[in-house]
Design a protein around this nucleic acid. Structure first.
Lengths: 235, 235
DNA sequence: CTGTTTTTACTGGTCGGCCCAGCTTTTGCG
DNA sequence: CGCAAAAGCTGGGCCGACCAGTAAAAACAG
């Protein structure tokens, strides 16, 4: 048996997580007031500096709404939340989404990646293709190794799809995929578990071929089909 | 003559901005190490606590990668960056995007909002429409008042479009729009300046009508057309 | 001179306290 | 009783010291 590295989390990170959990599990509801910073300081034995930093972080993530000299209330994360807020909620549910969330997520992914596919199919250089091929070569290397590192392969698939966005020439697409990152990684890990590692890598290669051939619609349909297959596998 | 309020920027905000600029202008390159917190303290005459907070903020934005007891290095913000990193880059260019950035941005917006339009046109309740109408009524009220508060109207238009995403039933769309928020606000303010306030509100109303009529494609084309007009106005 | 242990200098993380400005509640005077 | 002054909160910003680790330098043994 092997004991890996033990990462010591910072107090700030622990406090952020604690409050996130309270919000996401419904113990703290939208509109509820948080205790004052000084009160939290007493409860947690953490200094006001760190408390303040943690609350500021939660505000930026969209979980809280802080008004100077009035206090912090739990925000409606749908109104103000970022992708991070959603990722946190998914993390809490044991890393799994409801079926409806999954459908929403895939719909959004198809909207973004579909646009990237189209652009790249229409206009790409040899360098673009070489870049994407290099990523897939890395995935192949992972495939050959035993035991399979599903996490690493999921990362590679993520990099491939972000690579498509990156090379599409649209500055926003890769950033959007970065926002999705934690969710997409969960997705690929599940996809690897359900459809197998080789199948997923093969699908990526097929998409690249279609892009190379300039078949924008074909690439888009291939993407759509795999998404539907994934959704079907949930039943 | 009238002298308005004088906002005193905080040291922390100034430091954040300074470092952001250094990164975005290339004086600090990806992979470069930052001076230690203590070194920065000496250079800037700002306390280490504030330095620490500023660096933490830059990390959350995706500009830095901080490892405890090892230091901070400039992160590849294309890899890890969020929409905020891009917003910062735009802010640096005097709040305006290049033509290519604008095109990218609108392409992404059409991809996301287009999907939301389609969903909402196909499936909406009376409550959804009432919700959106209420937002437009607020925009009308702003329109009647003199002088025009362009910022507030831009906010209203943002809320309307986010409302469409919200009511589309896709949990991700509104979150994506939230990520775009700072950029979208710049967009609407410019659009108001170029096409006039009334015209923008009228367009929103027209979109709502098409959604009500269930004309998904019509609504989508209307959106696409206005985007193209905006792009055309840049020449 | 080499390989190993110990020391030291340096890192980010945390602490508690200071003052500030503004909102809320209590107090106290006319 | 009415109303204004005061006291007591809030978060925001900042400071200098201390903590627990790391990595390089110094000391040491062979």
């Amino acid at each position: 048996m092997q004991i890996g590295v033990i990462e010591v989390p910072t107090r700030r990170a622990l406090l952020v997580q604690r409050i996130e959990d309270q919000i996401l599990t419904g113990k703290l509801r939208v509109g509820d007031s948080l205790p004052s910073e000084r009160q939290l300081q007493e409860e947690t034995h953490i200094s006001k500096t760190v408390i303040h930093a943690a609350l500021a972080e939660l505000e930026q993530k969209g979980f809280l709404e802080i008004t100077p000299r009035r206090g912090a209330v739990v925000a409606n994360y749908v109104e103000t939340g970022t992708m991070e807020a959603l990722a946190a909620r998914i993390r809490l549910n044991g890393g799994s989404m409801t079926r409806e969330q999954t459908r929403s997520f895939l719909e959004a992914r198809v909207a973004i990646e579909g646009a990237a596919f189209r652009r790249l199919a229409e206009r790409h250089t040899e360098e673009d293709l070489a870049y994407l091929e290099a990523i897939l070569a890395g995935a192949d290397a992972l495939l050959a190794r035993e035991p399979l590192d599903a996490r690493a392969l999921a990362e590679a698939l993520f990099r491939f799809h972000r690579g498509i966005c990156l090379r599409s020439g649209n500055e926003f697409f890769p950033l959007l995929l970065n926002e999705f990152r934690p969710i997409i990684l969960e997705f690929w890990q599940r996809s690897i578990a359900v459809f197998g590692a080789a199948s997923n890598v093969h699908l990526a290669k097929r998409c690249l071929e279609l892009i190379r051939a300039g078949d924008a619609e074909g690439a888009f349909r291939r993407l759509e089909r795999s998404v539907n297959e994934y959704l079907g596998s949930l039943d």
